[in-house]
């Protein structure tokens, strides 16, 4: 079950093996830090598991099961972040009946650390989203929606820095262009800002000013498109400081993260776990104090 595939380019492989051998001689093993990132996207109000007759998703999903799983992982590694990439709302009558209250309350009980905002999170209007905020004990992180002229002004953060076991993890969020996708009556005067520009600016800030060891982008841009539309894959290639993009919107079921190369030639992971809470995504980072491992020497092992 735990078979590991190692993805890496061969030159890097040699480098890593060399360093690995060295570090066991020169450094204490406890200097290695372990950060676990758990993530969901496009859960779309799927509170209960799918029923036995609900096609290919029959018997899958369910928030209460997700809670068990997350708790187990947190016990294994308390240095865990739990993130969601948007479209929390809309998809079952739970949303139509309770307006997202239950979704936010459950995510709070599951101790989500942060979420970004998806297009469907505007389905009850920006006022409908605002009204549910008191039920959320976690942050909404989005940097490219300017809410200045809306009721959401001041309710979201561009980014947040989490501290886990001495490791600084910068998380910032990106939302999809709403025009043409969401009725403008719903998002009102929310202004969409260029995601690549924001990612460049905030990525640099997180790496260089906040000195983050890891930079994670929570994105609702979508995995990939045929045309010019900005996507997670395009974003990964067009920016410099992101280590992991946790995506959503396109309901893309990735068995393992896609490894892209950024503008500086460093590796970026892009992950997305489909939709409806059918899967929980997990990415484990092991950080060494050994400063001479170059970014290229990252060994990516995928279960």
């Amino acid at each position: 079950m735990k078979r590991k595939d190692f993805i890496q380019n061969t030159a890097v492989a040699t480098a890593f093996l060399g360093l690995g051998g060295l570090s066991t001689l020169s450094f204490k093993p406890e200097t290695r830090r372990h950060i676990t990132i758990l993530h969901t996207n496009d859960v779309h109000s799927h509170i209960e598991p799918f029923g036995p007759e609900e096609g290919r998703n029959a018997g899958l999903g369910g928030v209460a099961r997700r809670a068990t799983l997350i708790e187990k992982i947190r016990q294994e590694n308390p240095n865990t972040l739990l993130l969601d990439a948007g479209d929390i709302f809309q998809g079952t009558p739970y949303f139509n009946f309770y307006g997202g209250e239950l979704e936010f309350k459950l995510m709070s009980k599951l101790k989500y650390d942060a979420a970004t905002i998806g297009n469907h999170d505007f389905d009850n209007g920006i006022d409908g989203l605002y009204a549910q905020l008191p039920h959320a004990d976690f942050d909404f992180i989005i940097s490219n929606y300017d809410f200045k002229n809306t009721i959401m002004d001041g309710q979201t953060k561009d980014y947040r820095v989490f501290h886990k076991d001495g490791i600084k993890i910068g998380v910032f969020g990106l939302g999809i262009e709403l025009q043409g996708l969401v009725n403008d009556k719903l998002y009102k005067e929310t202004k969409y800002l260029d995601p690549v520009e924001m990612a460049t600016e905030i990525g640099a800030k997180l790496k260089n000013e906040e000195n983050c060891d890891l930079v994670i982008c929570l994105s609702h841009l979508g995995y990939q498109y045929k045309g010019d539309k900005i996507s997670d894959i395009k974003l990964a290639r067009a920016t410099s400081n992101i280590d992991l993009i946790i995506g959503g919107h396109t309901h893309t079921f990735l068995e393992r993260p896609t490894v892209e190369t950024n503008k500086k030639g460093n590796k970026v992971l892009v992950n997305q776990v489909g939709c409806y809470g059918l899967y929980l995504g997990r990415v484990d980072f092991f950080l060494d104090e050994n400063k001479n491992i170059e970014a290229d020497g990252v060994k990516i092992a995928i279960d």
Partner: peptide, 30 residues
């Protein structure tokens, strides 16, 4: 600066299925 480098990354996609027992407190809350 004390920055650390990523030495290794591993990942897993975990299926939420009937093998996982539902958390009782969450179930009761729903």
């Amino acid at each position: 600066k004390n920055s650390r480098n990523v030495a290794e990354i591993s990942s897993e996609r975990i299926s939420i299925n009937s093998e996982i027992i539902a958390d009782q407190e969450i179930d009761e809350f729903i």
